[in-house]
């Protein structure tokens, strides 16, 4: 029998998870709208459908734990605590953006919330996560590093090098693979000899498990348990969260490589209404309360868009800022 929600988390916390999933969805759908209006440009990879992974996983971590992710990372930053207005402003390329308009959608970074970056080279963040975990051990800190990546990353050299290294040096890294079954248009079984990704870690003696990435509570419980193990044992752990993106790889992708039947099966498993249903069934919330959360999140995204729209563009004088640290022991540079 399924454990009751309130035996796992207090009602207030459960409502918080619901709110974060709704905010993530509303934010992404708001981004899509702004993209079609031409206000967000460049690449735009949306997270709709995968919310249970970011929300459940982040709830299972401590705030001082480092998080790194790939380029589909708006929700991970917002769920971690980044201001949605500043994330939207970054997507608009405005100076009030999280990275002052220098990074855009794929390169959010918010050290205040220990969100150590979105990286747009597939698998590029894995070695960096290992290095951050090493810095924590070296400095005697209690924190762990959670590294998100997609199913496409598992065939990169950095995946294998990083898993080997993390186990060899006994570093507190929690690897979280968000398996949404497609690396752009290539399905996992067409790119991986062993499509069951979590089984690949046996080559590196790293324990792993597969979790339903459409169930926020399942993800939360798995990550909380794994994070405790990683923190206590100072060793890596690996979670494969099976999920699905409701949109194409990016806004430029109509996702014609996926059948309508497949998409409709996954949409029927949408993590947000599924969790709402449980909250109602178990009387954690009323429909009025959930509706209130939805309205509030819609409003927050409107505010974010308004903030981004009215924010100033970066000045041309900011162009050269941030390449090098200017007050450097190396003296004057003609680049600074």
């Amino acid at each position: 029998m399924e454990i009751k929600l309130q035996a796992i988390l207090p009602g207030q916390k459960l409502m918080h998870l619901y709110r974060q999933m709704v905010l993530s969805r509303e934010f992404e759908e708001g981004c899509a709208e702004q993209y079609t209006k031409g206000r967000i440009t460049g690449f735009l990879h949306l997270y709709s459908g995968q919310e249970a992974v970011a929300v459940g996983a982040t709830a299972g971590l401590h705030h001082e734990d480092y998080i790194l992710s790939a380029y589909r990372e708006h929700a991970q930053a917002i769920v971690r605590g980044s201001d949605p207005r500043r994330v939207m402003a970054e997507l608009f390329g405005k100076s009030t953006g999280l990275c002052k308009g220098k990074g855009g959608s794929m390169h959010l970074f918010d050290p205040e919330h220990n969100f150590m970056g979105g990286y747009a080279i597939v698998g590029g963040q894995l070695p960096i996560a290992v290095g951050l975990a090493f810095s924590s051990v070296y400095r005697g800190e209690d924190r762990i590093t959670a590294c998100f990546f997609g199913d496409g990353a598992v065939n990169q050299g950095t995946f294998h090098e990083s898993l080997n290294w993390a186990r060899l040096w006994e570093l507190p890294v929690l690897f979280i693979c968000e398996n949404n079954f497609y690396g752009i248009g290539t399905e996992v079984h067409r790119s991986s000899a062993l499509a069951s990704i979590h089984k690949r870690t046996c080559g590196y003696d790293i324990p792993s498990e597969k979790v339903d990435g459409m169930d926020v509570i399942a993800v939360y419980r798995a990550v909380r348990h794994a994070a405790e193990l990683v923190r206590e044992q100072r060793r890596p752990y690996f979670i494969e969260a099976v999920t699905y993106r409701f949109r194409g790889h990016s806004m430029a992708d109509p996702a014609k490589y996926r059948s309508a039947a497949e998409q409709s099966i996954w949409k029927s498993r949408d993590p947000i209404p599924a969790f709402a249903k449980r909250l109602l069934e178990e009387s954690v919330a009323t429909e009025t309360e959930l509706e209130g959360i939805r309205r509030e999140c819609t409003e927050l995204v409107k505010e974010a868009v308004q903030f981004a729209e009215t924010s100033p563009w970066p000045e041309s004088s900011e162009l050269w800022d941030g390449v090098y640290v200017p007050d450097d022991a190396v003296g004057e540079s003609d680049h600074v």
Binding site: Y66, L126, P127, A129, V130, G131, L132, F134, S135, W165
Partner: peptide
Amino acid sequence: NTIIGVAIGAAMG
């Protein structure tokens, strides 16, 4: 590649 990545992460940390 991971030697450099680990150094980057360590420096960031």
